[in-house]
């Protein structure tokens, strides 16, 4: 067991290093931050001097080594754009992203599962067809367009929900939350729907097909033969058995939601990490971009590690460390 975890951790470190190296190399192509950092009157000498002081003249491997070295000591550098320590900058944006992602995931589950169940039970009902059509929209429309449409309807025309920002956030220590104020909750609705819509459709379609599958199985027939009520058959027998893949998918998708929050955050000016990242890209603010990508990589690695460990716990076949012993 320990060997398995260690091996996994080692792999995770390797993945992190590769991801950070690739992202760091890519930054060479976003451009030169210096001209964004200074005003038009700044002389060329001053620009060159600043570039030298920031170490932008050095070759990429050296800069990468320096960045990793500092990062290991907990120092992610200072943002070129905001002149603030990157670690604190990202930490201050983390709660907003996590709250939004969680809200989106909850929305996707709470709406997606019942819709899927309904479509699975009554595949020919008009409402089920409507759900199917809606889900097609969710899959095919790009996130930013959905966001803009929601803003147009609920903020501009109906004027009932805010079009941008996080409303009022309350600070609990270093964590800020928008879940405790009415304005914060109202501000969460549109971005959470926008972000969760794709996952909702995914879950709905998954639950629907799983339900259709399960309802054809023998044990459902037996359950019916035993004279159980429809309710008991549908929910305790059928639905419960469809949930295993749903939970797996949702877990894995949580990472995707956090990573894809970039677009939703940009549309709704949601003050999370994704927005910070986009703003940094436009400015070529390398320390922030590098730190963000490494953080996201870390997140994926952790989620995958946890999933692997869960499989390990669930599937006895994996517990045999060496294939030789399997027989």
């Amino acid at each position: 067991m320990i060997a398995f975890v260690l091996r996994r951790l080692l792999q995770a470190v390797a993945v992190m290093l590769v991801v950070s190296l690739i992202s760091f190399a890519l930054f060479n192509f976003v451009g030169d931050p210096i001209n964004n950092m200074v005003g038009q009157e700044t002389t060329l000498d001053e620009r060159a001097e600043l570039r030298r002081q920031l170490g932008l003249e050095d070759p990429i491997p050296l800069r990468f080594a320096r960045f990793i070295g500092n990062a290991l000591q907990g120092n992610l550098g200072v943002s070129y754009r905001m002149a603030e320590p990157v670690g604190r900058l990202i930490l201050s944006r983390l709660p907003a992203t996590l709250e939004l992602s969680l809200a989106a995931a909850v929305f996707a589950l709470l709406v997606g599962v019942p819709m899927g169940v309904y479509c699975g039970l009554y595949p020919r009902a008009p409402l089920a067809r409507l759900f199917q059509a809606v889900s097609l929209v969710g899959v095919s429309l790009p996130t930013f367009l959905i966001g803009i449409l929601l803003i147009l309807i609920f903020a501009v025309h109906l004027n009932i929900l805010p079009s941008f920002g996080r409303g009022e956030a309350v600070a609990l220590g270093w964590w800020t939350t928008g879940l405790l104020t009415a304005a914060g909750l109202k501000a969460l609705i549109l971005p959470a729907i926008t972000l969760g819509l794709f996952q909702m459709t995914l879950i709905m379609r998954l639950v629907r097909s799983e339900m259709l599958e399960v309802l054809r199985t023998d044990y459902i027939k037996f359950a019916r033969a035993r004279g159980l009520s429809n309710r008991a058959v549908h929910f305790s027998h059928a639905l419960r058995n469809t949930l295993v893949p749903v939970i797996t998918i949702t877990g894995l998708q949580l990472g995707a939601i956090i990573a894809f929050a970039v677009i939703t955050e940009t549309v709704f000016q949601w003050p999370g990490m994704g927005l910070l990242f986009i703003q940094s890209v436009q400015f070529a603010d390398v320390p922030v971009m590098a730190s963000y990508l490494i953080l996201i990589a870390l997140l994926f690695v952790i989620i995958n590690l946890v999933v692997d460990l869960l499989y390990y716990a669930v599937d006895p076949r994996l517990r045999l460390d060496r294939p030789g012993k399997a027989a």
Binding site: I148, I151, L152, A155, V156, S163, F164, G165, T266, V267, F268, Q269, L275, I278, Q279
Partner: peptide
């Protein structure tokens, strides 16, 4: 307030 997205700012 900072609202980066053009459409959102106008909205």
């Amino acid at each position: 307030s900072v609202i980066q997205n053009d459409a959102t700012r106008v909205a």
